[in-house]
Amino acid sequence: MKPRKVTLVRRLVQLAFFILLLYGAFIFPHPLEAPIPSIEPGTPRTSQYPRDRILWVSGKECVIDMYLPVLACRFIAQGGTFKSCSLHVLSENITWKTSIKLLLPHLAFLAVLSFLFARMWCGWACPLGAMQDAMGWIRRQFGAGPWHLAQGWDRFFRVLRHVLLWLSLAISALITLPLFGRTGVNDALFLIYCQLCPSRLVYPPLGGVNPCWTDFTNGITTTLTFLGWFCLGVFALGFMVPRLWCRFCAVGALLSYFNRGGLVTLEKQAGKCTSCGTCRRVCPVEVQRVYRDRTNPIVTDTQCTLCGRCVESCPEEGCLSMCLAGRSIVES
């Protein structure tokens, strides 16, 4: 069949991002004025991510004091190139009530990056995504089949990730209110989504840092420890279910708002489609829309990571294409 060019390019991009995002500080030496220490059980979260360290006006702690839409995770600590992901920057600034004037340039920059590439960040840049792809590769070496997610679970995840996103943003705002039992910030609930996200547990060991596996200080930290393990379990299930975490991820949910109406689109000429079902079979996140949709020219699904496997696998010439601002870049 056709050479798998898109996937080859994507693997190279993924590798480059993986090295850059996780080990940038070793490649581009920079004065680490105050590297973020690893979290110790019992230490207040807010003392490690204090108000004066969150925007680029602060002291250097990473190579480029900027944020990326996907997991350029803050918890990479000493090794990272960028500062954090979009959900991290939103959560902490909501909690710290940062002035909008200070925040706006960052938000604008993130919005532009999200608009430009939408969930392409997930498929092409996110190190968690790359790691799941690598896990899938290991599974294939053992000849074990991928497990498919039942339609019901798929529908459930599609709703759940938005609930996770908005709940964690809401909690970020609410924990400063006195109605949570005390005035000031409820420390245990600070950066709640980050405490669940598998990257907080997965990245630090890759940089040689202890990620704080357990924190049984109080009821909330204990609950969050267990929930964090649960999410790590979901991530680990990615060995069997391709890109399982990506269907769950709240950062992906945030980016998915740009998937329809963004600059990068997946387009289909329904007239050329023979309904052979190849696009649906090869999709790592089991998107149905590309196969089912016969009326709309743009078939980007909110779950789609724009990995391009359907485009390169489609046997009909010109039927599927990945477009940038309406101009086709890759065609089947």
């Binding site: 294939r140 089949g145 023979t274 079979r281």
Partner: peptide, 26 residues
């Protein structure tokens, strides 16, 4: 003679799925 069989992965269940779908869907 037109539609090729393209499975997600080259293992037995996935190939069977591709073979079955290619015979039916197009």
């Amino acid at each position: 003679l037109y539609v090729p069989i393209i499975p997600q992965e080259w293992n037995l269940p996935e190939m069977l799925l591709a073979v079955a779908e290619t015979a039916l869907l197009p």
